[in-house]
Nucleic acid binder design. Structure first.
Lengths: 187, 187
DNA sequence: ACAACCATGTAACGCGTTACATGATTGC
DNA sequence: GCAATCATGTAACGCGTTACATGGTTGT
């Protein structure tokens, strides 16, 4: 089985979820579209690692709520302690930074300011998620015994990294300013 | 054309490179194997965006050194200012953290200590890369006019994020210790 | 001896995205 | 009226990995 399969099992340890919900919750540490998640869940179900119940809703479409089975838990537990594949990062913006010399200073600044803006949105969103969790579960959240501990750790991590990204952008903007001052000074 | 194609063009702006070298240099912001890079370079060459010269070597296999063409530069320049696709991150370790509650505290600690170790190696390597660059190019490196400016920015960014990852792991280890203390205190 | 590095390439397969398909409800 | 949210699914395609193939040199 592949990493995404295990990731879904792991998320179902926290609480039973629909495929729709899993697709969204995935965002903190993986990216996958529903078109990948739904067929995988069907496969996990066929393999006896998860089960689902139909839930009828009014005013919303019906949904399938998936739960992890004992068999699924056994497999997942084995997987958790195995060595992990190195993280994969693919960031188009960074590819553009590589070639930033092609643009003028002002355009470069604009690009970094836009990056800051998009990450500030993420940070605000992340902080909300964290404080919501803290309100709901309190200090219990910081114990490994809490069902939401893992997710909480990932939120804190994401927040830190997003803030660091912003700090880096500001540092770059500083460099871009210096360049301009020196150029002006030389005149 | 896809993002990797542009990424390769961007790297060739800095200096002409072989496919082998490009595959390695890619590591700061993208991941791709040589089996993907070589055919893409062939395609870029057919499209007139890069050219190459055969370089015979003694004691080493011959290589092809690729350079970006004017046409390639035009295309790349257009691309740089376009909005970027959101970054993609897929990290198996983080998927495991989600389900960390399945393991005992000691195993969890071991996993985080291993993560710290692997990131400390990365940090050490990154610092070397940065100081090598600084020795070679000096303060010129911090100007947008420097050919290596973009790459330098990416190195600094990676270093920061890798250090932040380590700090997060230490924070988690602290939480795991607290849990243990409370459990002991309760006895 | 054996692994690692340099260097390029192809083929098969699996993972992931885009697009197509449906349909009710809520907010602007 | 139009977009967004909720909810699930399939099909086609493109991106990315694994494995196969070759072969000399350097270091342990």
């Amino acid at each position: 089985m592949n990493a995404l399969g295990y990731a879904l099992l792991g998320m179902l340890m926290r609480k039973p979820c629909s495929g729709y919900e899993l697709t969204q919750l995935l965002e903190v540490f993986w990216q996958a579209k529903h078109s990948q998640v739904y067929p995988l869940l069907t496969k996990l179900e066929q393999d006896g690692l998860v089960t689902f119940v139909h839930v009828e809703q009014t005013g919303k479409p019906d949904k399938k709520i998936y739960s992890i089975t004992d068999e699924g838990q056994t497999l997942l537990t084995q997987w958790v302690t195995k060595p992990s594949a190195p993280p994969v990062i693919r960031d188009e913006f960074l590819a553009k930074v590589y070639a930033i010399g092609l643009t003028d200073t002002n355009t470069a600044k604009r690009l970094f300011r836009e990056r800051i803006f998009s990450f500030e949105e993420k940070v605000a969103f992340r902080k909300e998620e964290i404080s919501q969790m803290q309100e709901e579960y309190g200090s219990e959240l910081e114990q490994i015994t809490c069902r939401h501990f893992g997710r909480y750790l990932l939120f804190q991590r994401k927040l830190k990294l997003e803030e660091e990204e912003i700090a880096w952008c500001h540092w770059v903007l500083g460099l871009l300013d210096n360049t301009k001052i020196n150029a002006t000074a030389k005149k």
